[in-house]
Amino acid sequence: MPRKERRNWLNFNNMSQTLNIQNLHASVDGNEILKGLTLEVPKGEVHAIMGPNGSGKSTLSKVLAGHEDYEVSEGLVTMDGVDLLELEIDERSRAGLFLAFQYPHEIPGVTNANFLRAALQARLPKGEEIDAVGFYKDMYAKMDSLNMDRKFTGRAVNDGFSGGEKKRNEILQMMMLDPNYAILDETDSGLDIDALKIVAEGVNRMRSPERGFLVITHYQRLLDYIVPDVVHVLFDGRIIKTGGKELALELEEKGYDWVTQELAPA
């Protein structure tokens, strides 16, 4: 696998508490989508990525999660000093990375409760069993906070869920798995304003010095509710501008053309 062949020549930042992406190049079916992306999300911060459709936002999130369709040809990603790209998909998750999918997959016949339980069980040492009573108590409390009907525990994962229900389910999973770094890929799409507020509150409650967030969105609206520390603009596979939270408003007002024109050679 190409992933294994890459030389591990960069090994700085070993002990740092940060998700560090350096010069990341990734392609799918021979087309380069990420073209040297550099970005750092320290623990305790919320970073937003905005960018037009097709700029590579979901590609970035899937490459970080380890999807095998995407080939990384260059670059380095470390999570708290660990070379993320060397890990299997499930190892990355257990190491503390979480991706809330833009389009969560349906798993027919596997109930939400069994799925979450298996995910938590996978984090325990061999021979140790998850405490079922505590698990349900915890899950119900978190579902209540997201205004989710308890019937969801017995329904198959995302099967027949509305767009909004799927997104809420992603946030529930994030809450249960308690990651160190969470990437939210367009969690706002498909949510009405009330649901958006509930989900944003859930995310805000999870903000902590121990956790970093990378919030991917197409619209500025979400960032009214999850106020970011840093905003990046992704365009054509690269971060082309970075600023404070006011950058999101500026983008909303002037459109993406404004940034790309700024960049254009005189």
Binding site: A65, G66, E88, R92, S93, A119, L177
Partner: peptide, 9 residues
């Protein structure tokens, strides 16, 4: 992929 992304091998 979806299940693996939640830590299940």
């Amino acid at each position: 992929f979806y299940l693996q992304a939640r830590g299940i091998d």
